[in-house]
Nucleic acid binder design. Structure first.
Lengths: 235, 235
DNA sequence: GCCTTACGTCAACAGGGTTGACCCAATGTG
DNA sequence: CACATTGGGTCAACCCTGTTGACGTAAGGC
């Protein structure tokens, strides 16, 4: 069909099971579905079943799966950044942005895994970019540097968060197999073939943990070092 | 079936169309398929057709799609790292690893998008990890730090590369729509609502470019700053 | 109370991964 | 050289997926 999806709906017709559909309700149900029944639960058919309507009714609200995904992504960003106000410390503010984005993604891994590599240049994201660049400007960076460096920072944060989300969106047995790999496969290695891995063997199980905060800290250290003198962070 | 996949095969029986299957041939055909007929071309059925065999014959070589994906990922890593020998400069070596990994992913965007967040547990991956950790050890880092910092470094590189690959793997119209949205959205911004973006407006067109190298440089700067004294990079 | 049309429903299609049964032929042995 | 073994290619089938076009019903404007 790919019918034009109107912005305002007046003829709200209850579904066979009595529910009245809406874009909001659909997005919220999709997120709830993922949260309750695991990452694989999101499909047009399951979503229809959860809503108590025919799966194809969703096509009256979204042009297709892609459209639905973008709507979900916008909702996630909005929820993650809700109530954020940057303080005086620009480094701390950037770190909080990073942690909020990550938390938002991990709250809905499957949706994030689908949407993270999309460029949803919508209101919430634009506002976040404006805020982030503003932080680097107040740190004393020249406009050109502020733009470039913020891009590097936020791209790293988004990429990391997307990777973590994608990992959590894997079916459980795959996730556990990957996790076990660092304990099992990497433990019994030939010392001569892999000398460096052998040297750090006790640390290998930790390789399964997230490196998100470590990477963010490294980036913020580099940014602090590059910041013009006299405009340092408050600590 | 999920039969045990043996490592050594002796009874090579030609397929109906005369081709003799092998793990190598399957992986190479999968990569060729993706390269020629676009990102969506990779499916068990299409792969079987391209090989001139029944699709289910692949299950004699791989336990399932997941197993095949891991094999493809390891192949990409192997190709990317082929012929790499680290020089004296550990910073330069890490940068080259980053650029090689990225180039390998971008050469097969769709495959990379599927495999980037997985742990392949295979030879090429293990060797790359050993090499990277070895570089940090020669830089003078303690084993625990070397492992943790290498993880942060390589995760960032992999995440960035995966994001770029995923974007290139999108259907053309989605990719172009995202690009257009970026241009259009930032053209008519209200200066009062988005003051910082307005301040850096001349720099915004450059925001569409990749921030990969910028992010890698920042990370390497931070690592250099943290490196034990007397073991600096050669420049 | 009628007419229009929005929108929920239904049936169907094309494509996906995965399976168990079948059976031929390549191999190692005598 | 002949035979038993079994690896592995083939086939049919199952259930999942997103998406479509036709259909009809009930809601709203008049």
């Amino acid at each position: 069909m790919t019918t034009r999806v109107p912005q305002e709906r007046k003829r709200r017709r209850p579904t066979r099971s009595g529910v009245v559909l809406s874009e909001q309700l659909i997005v919220e149900t999709a997120l709830r579905l993922i949260g309750e029944h695991g990452p694989e639960a999101l499909s047009v058919r399951r979503l229809g079943a959860a809503l108590g309507c025919d799966p194809t009714a969703l096509y009256r609200y979204f042009h297709g799966t892609d459209d639905l995904v973008l709507a979900i992504a916008d909702r996630i960003i909005g929820d993650a950044m809700a109530g954020f106000v940057p303080g005086d410390d620009w480094v701390a503010a950037l770190r909080e942005i990073a942690l909020r984005v990550r938390a938002g993604y991990l709250a809905h891994p499957r949706a994030a895994a689908m949407a993270a590599h999309r460029v949803t240049r919508r209101h919430n994201e634009i506002r976040a970019v404006d805020t982030g660049i503003g932080l680097l400007l107040t740190a004393g960076f020249a406009p050109a540097d502020a733009a470039r460096l913020y891009l590097a920072f936020i791209d790293t944060v988004l990429s990391h968060a997307a990777t973590e989300a994608a990992f959590r969106a894997l079916p459980r047995h795959q996730r556990e197999a990957d996790h076990r790999a660092w304990r099992d496969v990497y433990q019994d290695l030939d010392p001569e073939t892999y000398p460096s891995l052998t040297a750090v063997r006790p640390e290998l199980p930790g390789m399964a943990d997230s490196s998100f905060e470590q990477a963010v800290d490294l980036l913020l250290e580099a940014l602090t070092a590059r910041a013009p003198a006299g405009r340092h962070s408050h600590r």
